[in-house]
């Protein structure tokens, strides 16, 4: 089976609606298909990666720790748009650290999150075969 470049575009904040949670479910299932997977977090989607999310007071499932497992699913290309962070007064330090172990580099632990400019992200979008939007 041919390998395609899949991009999952996340533009919705978590908890206020289910899109973020169900998007993550797609990404985890998709890992089994061994495609070339990238995730983009744009606009309110960047809020999905915030540290210290605690849903105990609203009684819904806190799925945010699941993002940390993405590296184990070979999802290591996570692009966060710089402009979206800046507009919201956020920096990379406000986001959960997400890492993966690079099998081509003696399993060294590396950062999965790449903060990219709009220009860089536009090129990444352009290179995809399939784009799924949440």
């Amino acid at each position: 089976m041919a390998t395609k470049k899949f991009l999952y575009v996340n533009r919705t904040a978590p908890h206020g609606s289910i899109y973020a949670q169900e998007s993550l479910e797609v990404v985890l299932i998709a890992a089994a298909f061994e495609q070339d997977v990238s995730l983009a977090f744009i606009d309110d989607g960047v809020y999905q990666l915030m540290q210290n999310q605690d849903t105990s007071g609203i009684g819904s499932k806190n799925f945010s720790p699941t993002y940390k497992a993405l590296g184990d699913y070979d999802v290591s290309k996570i692009y966060v748009e710089q402009e979206s962070l800046e507009l919201r007064g956020l920096g990379k330090d406000d986001l959960m650290p997400l890492t993966y172990e690079d099998e081509d580099d003696d399993w060294a632990e590396k950062d999965s999150i790449h903060v990219v400019s709009s220009k860089e992200l536009a090129e990444i979008i352009d290179q995809q075969d399939v784009i799924l939007n949440f």
């Binding site: 998709a30 089994a32 298909f33 495609q35």
Partner: peptide, 11 residues
């Protein structure tokens, strides 16, 4: 069916 059907359709 499962979510795999979405990915399979994309492929």
């Amino acid at each position: 069916s499962g979510l795999g059907q979405l990915i399979d359709a994309g492929i």
